[in-house]
Amino acid sequence: MTINMELWQLISLLLAFFGFTAAGAKLLVGQFEARLDEKFDSMEQARAAADRTLRDSIQELAERQKELDAQFREQEKEMNRMQVDMLSHYVRREDYIRGQTVIEAKLDALSVRLETLQLKGVGAHDR
């Protein structure tokens, strides 16, 4: 079987084929670009949401840091007050030992005096 065509029919057929092919390619490229645009839009929305979340997190952290700083300052003030109170109420071991030594020395001196008085009193009683 043979097909006879004239040149203008062959050219028209080839032009129609290339036209359909170009139209199909343009349609495919258009769909590909539309899908890419959708992906980029969704990525941009996700990035914007992440930025908002990050900004909110940073603000929350800054507020928490301020609260912690205030608590730290309050704790530091309380510690300073305790140190001042401790100085007025606390007796160091060395100070206590020194005080006890003085008291014991006075008691020893008083004991010696009492013994002396008792010896003198006993001698005066015997006469």
Results as ranks from 00 to 15, higher is better:
M1Q: 08
M1F: 06
I3F: 05
M5Y: 14
M5E: 12
E6R: 09
E6Q: 05
L7C: 04
L7G: 03
W8L: 06
Q9H: 04
I11P: 06
L13F: 13
F17E: 07
F17Y: 14
G19L: 04
F20W: 10
T21M: 12
A22H: 05
A23D: 05
A23P: 01
L27F: 09
L28K: 09
L28Q: 11
V29Q: 11
G30E: 09
Q31A: 07
L36Y: 13
L36T: 08
F40N: 03
D41R: 12
S42I: 09
E44M: 02
Q45M: 08
A46V: 00
R47H: 01
R47M: 02
R47I: 01
R47Y: 00
A50S: 06
A50H: 01
D51W: 00
D51M: 04
D51R: 01
R52V: 11
R52P: 05
R52E: 14
D56K: 06
L61C: 06
L61K: 12
A62W: 04
A62D: 11
E63Q: 12
E63D: 12
R64I: 03
K66C: 03
E67R: 09
D69G: 00
D69R: 09
D69V: 06
A70W: 02
A70F: 01
A70H: 00
A70S: 05
Q71V: 05
F72I: 10
R73C: 02
E76H: 07
E76Y: 06
E76V: 02
N80P: 04
R81V: 07
M82P: 07
M82H: 07
Q83L: 14
M86G: 04
S88V: 13
S88A: 13
H89M: 15
V91M: 12
V91Y: 12
R92F: 08
R93N: 07
E94Y: 01
E94R: 00
Y96L: 14
R98V: 06
G99E: 13
Q100G: 04
V102K: 13
E104W: 01
A105D: 11
K106S: 05
L107S: 04
D108F: 03
A109I: 04
L110R: 05
E115M: 08
E115K: 15
L117H: 02
L117D: 04
L117A: 08
Q118M: 10
K120V: 13
G121N: 12
G123I: 15
G123Y: 14
A124W: 01
A124V: 10
D126E: 08
R127P: 10
